[in-house]
Amino acid sequence: MRCVIAKMNLVLMELAIKHYLDKTTQGTQFTFKSLYDDNEPYPLPELLTMVQEQIGLLEREFKERSDEMRVNALSVWRKKLDKLTKVNEQQQKKD
């Protein structure tokens, strides 16, 4: 996977999530401008991996300091992961 640091950027992740959850763009691959390529692909399986890593990071932070903000953030990211997983399963069935 190229551009791992860029793909961990929360703004870029949100853009990719919106792209894959949008009914009009489902089935197309999200791309962004990177240092290597003007159309760097951000495939859905890589996005799922990055979302899982974000959840893991939040879980570790929650263990250190549990507060309502982290609980809410974990809930939001888990919902996003569930929705993206469903989209991924639908795409796998089509292929």
Rank of each mutant, 00 (worst) to 15 (best):
L47G: 07
L74D: 00
Q90S: 10
R60I: 05
Q54F: 10
L48N: 07
D67A: 00
E61V: 03
E46C: 10
Q52P: 07
T28M: 06
V71S: 10
K18D: 10
T25Q: 12
L47T: 09
L81F: 09
E53D: 01
S66Q: 15
L35P: 03
Y42R: 08
D37Q: 15
R2T: 07
K23I: 14
Q91S: 09
D37W: 12
L35N: 07
L84R: 12
Q90Y: 11
K33C: 10
K18Y: 09
T31P: 04
Y36H: 13
L35Y: 12
E53P: 14
R2L: 10
F30T: 04
F32C: 04
K79R: 11
K94C: 04
N39V: 13
D38Q: 12
L74N: 01
K80Y: 06
K18T: 00
E89L: 14
Q54M: 08
E59R: 11
I55F: 05
T31Y: 00
I5L: 08
T25V: 06
R65V: 11
R70N: 07
R2K: 11
D38R: 14
D22Q: 04
S75D: 13
I5T: 08
R70M: 03
T24Q: 03
N72M: 11
V4Q: 06
D38G: 15
L81G: 09
F30E: 14
V4D: 13
R78K: 15
E14Q: 09
K79H: 15
S34G: 09
S75H: 01
